[in-house]
Structures are given as C-alpha cells and as structure tokens.
C-alpha cells in the first residue's frame, strides 16, 4: 500500500476533472454530446476510482451507502415528478410547455429536470452495484 504513491497522487489530480467532465456532459447535453446517462456513469466512475485507490471505507464516507441507495429510486421519482408537475400545471404528462411562459425556456427546464433524474438514478445504481460486489469480496 505504500508503493502506490504515484497512483494516489495521480488519482487525486484526476478526480476533480472527472467530476467536472461529468457535470459538463450533464449540463452541456443540449449543445454537445451526452446527457444524464453518460454523466451518471462518469460520476459513478469517479467514486469507483476513488474506492479502488483509497479503499472502500474512504469511498463510503464520500458517498454513504444509505444516500446511494436512496438515489436509485430518487431519480425515477424526480423524473416522474416532473411529469406529474406538468400535469398539475394543466399539460399532459411530461409536456414541458406549461413550465414557463416561453416555449424554449419551458422545454429547457423540462429537459434539465428530467436529465437530473436520469443522472441520479444511473449514478446511484452504478455505485450501489459496485459497493455490493466489493462487499461480497470481503466477507
């Protein structure tokens, strides 16, 4: 464990940029490639890299299992909740036009909120799966 100094320092340098890239992919999805799914996997990959290099216990302090398990259904709820909200505003399920007065703004808000839901579920599922596999190896 002492000999992997380069790995540790290198990982620490890379980790914030991975997260930044995930956020870029998430919020720039309207203009460039990517979206919630890719951003979720990339940010989950960041936590997994952290867990591989610094140990799973350290990773669990960054992303507690309880929070991760809540993220799995939470994203679906955010997604479906957006649809329910548009229904409350008088539109159809997932019809974004009533969200704002301007057509474009309404659709940008709708896509934004839905993509957050995708990000949360995908990220939570990937991290939870990794934790589950890593836990099996220990006991």
């Amino acid at each position: 464990m002492r000999l992997d100094l380069i790995l540790r320092v290198g990982a620490k340098l890379i980790l914030p940029f991975i997260l930044l890239f995930a956020l870029y992919v998430q919020f720039h999805g309207d203009y460039g490639p990517g979206g919630g799914f890719q951003a979720g996997v990339i940010s989950a990959g960041m936590v997994i890299l952290y867990a591989i290099i610094f140990g799973i216990r350290a990773a669990k302090q960054v992303a507690p299992p309880r929070v991760v398990e809540m993220m799995v259904p939470g994203g679906v709820l955010i997604y479906a909740g957006t649809g329910a909200y548009t229904m409350l505003l008088g539109g159809n399920f997932l019809e974004y036009t009533p969200l704002a007065h301007d057509f474009l703004h309404a659709h940008e808000w709708g896509i934004f909120s839905v993509e957050i839901g995708v990000l949360v579920t995908v990220c939570g599922t990937m991290i939870a799966m990794f934790y589950a596999f890593a836990e099996r190896g220990r006991s």
Binding site: G29, Y31, P33, G35, I111, V114, E115
Partner: peptide, 11 residues
C-alpha cells in the same frame, strides 16, 4: 437546442 439527440430522448 442544436443537439437533437437530447431533445428526442428527453422531450
């Protein structure tokens, strides 16, 4: 927005 893939998937 120019990326239609996102618009198709999410909208």
């Amino acid at each position: 927005p120019p990326n239609i893939v996102t618009a198709v998937l999410a909208d």
